[in-house]
Simulated assay, not measured.
Amino acid sequence: MGISQGDEVTWNTSQGRTRGRAVEKRVERFEFEGQTFNASADEPYWIVESGTTGARAAHKEGSLDKRR
């Protein structure tokens, strides 16, 4: 069960569990907000948007849980 664009997802932050949506999947090295991420087809990253603040962040797909 993979994650698809638009899916509602949850992830851990230093403030606790956050929920939002998956915006964009990345499978190649990329830069986001001044950081470089080494994404690949085997270890993709997602740009996610917080449902609370609207802030966007990059997270490994494995760190995200799809909401049911």
Rank of each mutant, 00 (worst) to 15 (best):
S4D: 09
Q5D: 02
N12Q: 13
G20Y: 07
E24K: 03
R26I: 09
T10L: 06
D7L: 00
S40N: 09
G16S: 01
V27S: 03
E31S: 12
E24N: 03
E28S: 14
F37D: 03
L64D: 01
G54W: 10
D7Y: 00
Q15W: 15
H59V: 05
E49P: 08
R21W: 06
A22I: 01
G34Y: 00
T13A: 11
T13I: 00
N38M: 10
T13N: 05
R29L: 12
G34W: 02
S4L: 08
N38V: 05
S50N: 00
G2P: 15
S14D: 12
E43C: 08
L64C: 06
R29V: 11
K25T: 03
E43A: 11
R19D: 00
M1K: 11
I47N: 04
A58H: 01
D42Q: 09
E24Y: 10
A41E: 11
S63W: 13
D65P: 10
S14Q: 14
W11M: 02
V9E: 00
W11K: 05
V9Y: 01
T36K: 09
R29W: 12
G6A: 01
Q15T: 12
A55W: 11
G6P: 05
A57Y: 14
V27R: 04
R17M: 10
T18A: 05
R17Q: 15
K66I: 09
G62Y: 10
T36I: 08
N12W: 12
K25M: 06
I3H: 08
E31A: 12
I3G: 03
A41K: 12
T10C: 05
T53Y: 04
G51R: 07
S63A: 14
A58R: 00
R29T: 11
R56G: 00
G51C: 06
T18N: 00
A58Y: 04
V9R: 02
A41R: 14
T18M: 08
Y45H: 12
R26G: 13
W46T: 01
W46K: 07
S40F: 12
E31G: 15
E33H: 15
G54A: 13
V9S: 01
T52F: 14
R19M: 07
T10P: 00
G51Y: 04
K60D: 03
T18C: 03
R17V: 14
